[in-house]
């Protein structure tokens, strides 16, 4: 099998941190009225900032990019490569609306999907940052009809099928 090279010229990162975080979380709800997925992606800010700067997606800290729609869109486009919903095997288009920074070091990125009718069985992929931090673990809490269900994603299990009640 041929290797695909996505040539990203960034320097080697420090692989060993004494105090690592490596955790991302998403809260997603299906808005029945609008027929859209709405949600929030939450990362440890310095993890994501470092990763996106090294990948050349952003050139400065998130603090300087607040309300910059071009940067928000670029951040979203990158993140949605590794954070995907599939309905009937077809990826659902997501778009980032904005982000906010919390004082305790998190970044919350708000997003919405295109209009979509969710099939009863659909798939989730959430391997954000796993290429850079192999110990990254991600979780999605999916909210439907006030019921919450949480799914865990690991480096070796980054895509999962879930069933929802219609």
């Amino acid at each position: 099998m041929k290797l695909l090279f996505f040539v990203l010229f960034f320097v080697c990162y420090s692989k060993t941190f004494a105090h690592s975080y490596f955790f991302a979380f998403a809260e997603v709800e299906y808005n029945v009225m609008q027929e859209k997925l709405e949600g929030t992606l939450i990362f440890t800010r310095h993890d994501l900032e470092e990763a996106l700067i090294k990948k050349g997606i952003i050139s400065s800290t998130f603090e300087k990019l607040q309300h910059d729609s071009l940067s928000i869109s670029a951040i979203g486009n990158t993140l949605f490569n590794d954070f995907k919903f599939f309905s009937n095997q077809i990826p659902i288009k997501l778009s980032a609306l904005d982000f906010s920074l919390t004082k305790n070091g998190l970044i919350e990125i708000y997003f919405k999907s295109e209009k979509v009718k969710l099939s009863q069985n659909f798939e989730l992929q959430f391997n954000s940052l796993m290429d850079i931090y192999p110990k990254q673990q991600n979780k999605i809490t999916f909210i439907q009809n006030s019921e919450k269900r949480t799914y865990v994603f690991m480096n070796n299990e980054s895509r999962r099928k879930i069933t929802i009640s219609n």
Binding site: L3, L4, F5, F6, V7, L8, F9, F10, V11, C12, K15, N127, M130, D131, P134, N155, N156
Partner: peptide, 17 residues
Amino acid sequence: IEVEKMEDFRSISDINR
């Protein structure tokens, strides 16, 4: 002992590392 898979080698820098 680090678990690896091919997706970990997506860039030249990954391989350099």
